[in-house]
Design a protein around this nucleic acid. Structure first.
Lengths: 206, 206
DNA sequence: CGTATGTTTTACCAGTCGGTCAAATTATGA
DNA sequence: TCATAATTTGACCGACTGGTAAAACATACG
């Protein structure tokens, strides 16, 4: 029995550079137009490559999209993972809100990529949603219920609490155009953090 | 000078039936795939027509989309319009939340249509956003500020208060797949209203 | 240098896109 | 009934879609 049916050569510098460029370009395009609304040509141009050249690095349009989604899902769930069952409950939850809001500020494209995918019925990550995502959320809901039982936070529906954190924070990334159109010159994030802290403090205190 | 360069014939029964069918089909398709991800053929099939037959009723794909968007924008803003400056403040605001949540429950497609449009940069309704939408929101923010000054509700940022109502209610329509995946068998709307009422009551009471 | 490997381009494919056209079909009303 | 208008169809267009093949080019290394 022999190992390594594929010799598994190391990545060239050029390969590394181009794959990075492609991922960045794909994120930009997919997050703006959704999977079906994006074209390989668009991504290639954005990455500074020709279409066949791009397809030399990735086997297909779908392959790029899937890799993006799967890589980003972990990053996306990190802030929730960091929530510590042994910490101070209100602090932990508001810390989670702050981390999610930071991600909306710093990685709006990633947020919109997921938003597009899920609004359109999550055809590519349905399994992850009811699999690893549901599992993580359910775990954290147990913690939240414990906090409630201990009288550390108000009695709220754990799942809906998490939904409200998601929707409130991601709104500033996903609906950026609308938020800015309504606010005019005022920067959204200037007051968002204050507002959300106020909201969750008032919601959670016993 | 003569009137009616177009004789302006009344709509036939067939015309009425088909236009209604097309609008319904277009809403279904556009709300699922976004503008660029949808095809005229798809809409036609969904409406039970052939593609050329559909284009006999609407001049182009874009025309269908624009008409949908503009018609629905009014419906979408109605709940906010109904908010009465002379009513009981907390009741008025929570009534608004309830009406928006009802729309998420009863018209999720309409919600997703807007969500797709705005996430993708609102190329077709940018002007309406910073025009009539901003105007209406600004008006209502004046009312909210008045309520705050009168000590009827807590001192919160009016614009962000409205954003939070939008994001929390529309989340249940736009991210329906995710919400259901995480909740499992539990129906989202069963507890959403209770949760949101609780949230805004705690946020707004002085 | 030369050769093997990695990279890019040109030309191309079959299928689909939004949309047009004229002909065929169906409904309408005197 | 018949003629007129409304509706539907099939055939078609040029542009674009995701993807392929092979040749041309660049690079690395003995």
């Amino acid at each position: 029995m022999s190992f390594g049916s594929k010799p598994e050569r190391p990545e060239t510098r050029i390969q590394q550079r181009n794959r990075v460029a492609i991922r960045a370009a794909a994120l930009k395009v997919f997050s703006t137009f959704g999977y079906r609304g994006s074209t390989v040509d668009q991504i290639a141009t954005e990455a500074g490559l020709s279409k066949p050249n791009l397809l030399y690095y990735f086997p297909s349009k779908e392959a790029i999209y899937r890799e993006l989604l799967e890589t980003l899902l972990e990053t996306w769930l990190d802030p929730l993972n960091e929530m510590d069952a042994d910490g101070e409950p209100v602090e932990e939850l508001i810390g989670y809100v702050r981390r999610k809001l930071d991600m909306s500020r710093n990685f709006p494209r990633e947020s919109r990529l997921f938003a597009n995918e899920i609004i359109q019925g999550a055809p590519q990550i349905e399994t992850e949603l009811s699999g690893s995502l549901k599992q993580l959320v359910d775990e954290k809901c147990v913690v939240i219920r414990k906090w409630i039982a201990e009288g550390k936070i108000a009695d709220v529906h754990p799942h809906h609490l998490i939904f409200s954190i998601w929707s409130l924070t991601q709104h500033y990334a996903d609906f950026d155009v609308q938020v800015r159109a309504v606010l005019g010159k005022e920067d959204p994030f200037d007051n968002a953090e204050t507002y959300l802290t106020q909201l969750f403090t008032r919601l959670l205190r016993v």
